[in-house]
Design a binder for these strands. Structure first.
Lengths: 230, 230
DNA sequence: ACAAAAGTGTTAGGCCTACACCCATGA
DNA sequence: TCATGGGTGTAGGCCTAACACTTTTGT
């Protein structure tokens, strides 16, 4: 079991897939971290990740990690950068293909052990193992860029949401503030939202309108050359 | 020399870096391809690329490949995607970290052997070895997206260029046509171009104005939150 | 002389931004 | 009653897109 059975003519790096899992609680962006139980960096927090099996793609590997930690199997998982620094892992040469995942917090299976896996608000993330600080920075940047041009934000919200929740999400990710009326107008004019339910009888002025992302409408617009922009 | 000296407890994929090298001849985007001299895919065209050494990063590897084929050592080289399909190489499991490079054709050292390395206009690229067709599609897409928001186009033009050349470049990459006056106005208003030389005495109406990309001006604007958009 | 390249300005419409008040609810 | 959240409209400025003619040169 511990023999060195896999031999090559030239040195091969190990390949891992890491998964930066983003969630949104209505106010802040959150990231799921795992406390390392073994050396190196024992006791430090890191992203879920692991060695890519010889018969799976990096994306399958990242999705496997995601499923192990959250129980989710149909979330968005996308590769964003491959980290290849020579000494990023003290054990051996390890190349990691970094992914981010977008999940709805409500759908995440509660972790069995809060000591081991924990959600951190963006502002409370501790210093991480390996080069994961750098990976996080790049993941956040990538998320910022992509949400400007693609409707990935909806993957972090419940199916049905209010305009205020949507605005909070954009503001949290982009770290800016929008004028509420302008945000409403812009979003509604885009034509990619549908009112989820007609307002109930007893709807008061205070009851917010619920929306749903209209994926087919978006696909249609996109095909016509429409581009989302924030 | 042919012994299997590098042994691991678990199987390790091989890791390569491939380099999609883009040039621009004033009219079309060109790509440098290498004719494979050995199996697999012997005789087919492919991107320059090779196995990552155990003490170099993927980017260093891609730059090494670029230098070998073009003599250039200071061109833009950027990773854009890592391809991990299980059967993408028939010999063994190979993960490739794909890069694109932007070079000025005038600075490229003429290849010794046109049989082996050759520039292809985008429309004349043959079907490629491995999954390089897919890699090319993604590289072109990535180039399209990036040129919309970052001034990378200038890396493909001579230091000094005319507005028409710049417009041709944008049109070739984005596969659209712009109105000449609107393109002039927009570019000039951005404030990132400098006139290269005062127009000479004998300048006729027909002599085009020469421009130069003003990188420091761009950096300054960018810091103020300015974003390039096309 | 004819074709091709380069320079140049205006107008209309759409989009973005800034901005304020009312109502209902729950504490 | 007070603070909070939610809904709503308009006016000005800027940017975009559409559009044509003149000059020069080379063939």
């Amino acid at each position: 079991m511990s023999e060195l059975n896999y031999c090559y003519k030239y040195p091969h790096p190990a390949v891992t897939a890491d998964c930066v899992i983003f969630g949104f609680d209505g106010v802040s962006i959150k990231v799921l971290l795992i406390k390392r139980g073994i050396e190196p960096y024992k006791g430090k927090w890191a992203f879920p990740g692991g060695f890519m099996k010889i018969d799976e793609t990096a994306e399958e590997c990242a999705k496997r990690e995601l499923a192990e930690e959250t129980g989710l199997t149909n979330a968005i998982v996308e590769q964003f950068y491959t980290f290849t620094d020579v000494n990023r892992d003290p054990r051996e040469r390890v190349v990691t293909i970094a992914h981010y995942a977008l999940v709805r917090l409500a759908e995440v299976k509660g972790g069995d052990d809060a000591e081991v896996a924990q959600w951190f608000a963006q502002s409370q993330i501790p210093s991480l193992a390996f080069d994961h600080d750098r990976i996080l920075r790049m993941a956040l940047n990538c998320l910022k860029e992509r949400i400007c041009f693609e409707p990935i934000g909806f993957e972090l919200l419940p199916e049905v949401f209010t305009m205020t929740e949507l605005q909070n999400l954009y503001e949290a990710i982009l770290e800016v503030k929008f004028d509420r009326r302008n945000f409403y107008n812009k979003m509604l004019k885009l034509g990619i939202l549908t009112e989820a339910e007609p307002r109930p009888e007893n709807a008061s002025r205070r009851t917010p309108t619920k929306y749903r992302f209209n994926a087919s409408k978006y696909a249609e617009l996109k095909q016509k050359g429409f581009r989302l922009e924030f």
